[in-house]
Structures are given as C-alpha cells and as structure tokens.
Nucleic acid binder design. Structure first.
Lengths: 150, 150
DNA sequence: CAACATTTAATGTTATAACATATATTGTGG
DNA sequence: CCACAATATATGTTATAACATTAAATGTTG
C-alpha cells in the first residue's frame, strides 16, 4: 500500500489529484508540528516567526501591515494583533507612517534580531528533517508545487 | 525569479530544502483557503469535514476518539470537542463502548452521510484547482511527499 | 487481588484564528 | 472642493487550537 494511504489508513483515492490535496494537508500537519516543537521553547508561534523573518528581510526598512499580510505564509487576516503581540514581547517596533497616516510602519527591533539569530539553527534542523530527499528531489517538489499554484 | 520567491518576495533561499519547508507551508495556506471557501457555505471547518470523511470511511463501523486523532490530517489534540460540535449539528452519534468503557464509539449519522454527499463535489472541484498539473506530475509530487516523510 | 502504571477521553484555560464591522485617512469624479 | 469611494488598519465577537491537567477504566505485577 502506498505510504499516505497507510498512514491515514484510507483504502484508495479517486485519483492522484485528490490524493495530492490530502497529501499536502497531511504533510503540512507533519511539518507544522516539527516547527511548533522547535519554536515552543522560545514562545513563538509559526506565524510570529514568519513575520519576524519577513521583517528581518526588510530590515532596516520598515514594512506595513498590508505588506505582512501579503507575504505571510498562512495569510491570516489578523496581522494587526499578531504585531501587537510581537510588540508586547519587544521584538518589533511600530510607528505611524508620516507620509500616509493610515499606514503603520513595522520594523524588527534589535532584540528581535537577536531572538531570530538564536533561531537560525532551525534552517539546519530541516536539513535533518528532510534527509530522505536529495537536493534534486527537493528541487523537483519545489518546481511542481510552484507549477501547481499556477 | 522562481515562482515562490516572487510570491513571497524573498530574495533567495539558502538551499532547496529550506525552500521546500516554506513552499509546503505556503502551498498549504493556498489550498486551505480554497477548502475554507468551499466549506463555509455548509458551516464546516476543514477538520470537521475530514473527521466526517474518516467516519464515513469506517461506516457502518464506529470509530474511537483515538482513531480519529491518529488519522486526522492536522492531528489536533482536541478531537473530543470537535466531535461534540459535530454531535450538536447532529452529524455524528456517540456511544460509550460496552467492551471498554473508557472508549467512546463515534459514528456518522444518516444526516451526516447526507451532508457529506452534498460535499462530494469538492473532490471534482480540486481537479479544477489542480488543473496545472498532469496526472503524472501529481503522482510525482505524491511519491516525493511520501518519501519526504520517510 | 491490591497498588500502581497505563490508556482513553474529557475538561479548564489561554491564545489565536476567522469573520464581520468600524474608524481613520486618502484618492477621485463631478 | 465636496461627496463618496477606496484603502489601511483596528476592534468586537465567536469558534477553535494548543497546552496542561483531571478523571475514569483497564492492565499489570508482585
């Protein structure tokens, strides 16, 4: 029996496309739980971690809330309050934008940069998590997933 | 610029494995939002929908809570209350198991079966969502994802 | 068979997600 | 330049996720 069918004990799928939907959801759950475990010690959720990485990518430029919404991997609509929580933790700063006062400039703080750098081991961790795939195979999935989303 | 990099506007990834982690999370978000949209009209969450499908797969046998936890795609620990909510909607039934009174037998109701059958169009919907991939390519991702999880 | 460990599920609590709506600011057509 | 649409963010609310703990039943071992 193919692997996924075995893991979720489903007899069979109607077709490869239906299996793919389930496989993406299942693989996400698998991956997500690994991230959770790594981030828990540092009291960050995966969304918060991703926002910090976006902000670091922009650093020293600021980002707006809508930019965060666009780029967040999970597209939660609740970016404002997610930023609130990061501000409480002193990992980011917020200023209203003088050019357009509707906007809010969000940027990562020094403390945020330090916190992130302590988490950079995670990228290496995933080399271990993904050890079953050769670089070439990983590249294969990547290009197929990109193609999938069209 | 490759597709994912463009979508989340990231300059580049350290390697294909790191990109893969991000790509899985991103693709999940993309897929999840499509499911949400399809399920919203019927006031079901994706977790609830998946549990109903597991129960239908077992029907007419009953499932225990721990079986649901095992098979659920997102492995939420909160299966008890998820079942509570489905019972409130009269989509499933619950009985304590006489053989082992710790256990709870959960099974899908007639109403649940009817509700699910109205949602079977979703599988076809995903043929459209996945139209960019040939059957063979879908199969390729499937086997690579299976291999990934080891 | 009694004490203790293990399994199974439920519950309490807090944080976050999802959805709708509100508020403030800016852009725009007449 | 004023009314109105559009944009950017914030807020209120409800449902659900995540985590820890508890409770009940069964297994196990001396």
């Amino acid at each position: 029996m193919p692997k996924l069918e075995e893991e979720i004990n489903q007899k069979k799928f109607k077709n490869e496309h239906q299996k793919l939907a389930v496989n993406i959801l299942y693989t996400h759950g698998w991956l997500f739980s690994k991230y959770l475990k790594l981030l828990k010690k540092h009291s960050l959720t995966l969304s918060q971690y991703n926002v910090l990485r976006i902000l670091r990518g922009q650093h020293p430029k600021a980002s707006t809330i809508s930019l965060l919404k666009e780029r967040m991997l999970d597209k939660t609509p609740d970016a404002s309050r997610l930023v609130d929580r990061l501000i409480e933790k002193k990992l980011v700063k917020r200023n209203t934008c003088s050019a357009d006062r509707r906007r809010v400039d969000v940027s990562i703080s020094q403390q945020g940069l330090r916190a992130l750098s302590k988490l950079d081991f995670i990228d290496d961790e995933f080399k271990v998590v993904f050890k079953n795939l050769k670089q070439k195979e990983a590249k294969g999935i990547n290009s197929l997933l990109d193609k999938l989303r069209g």
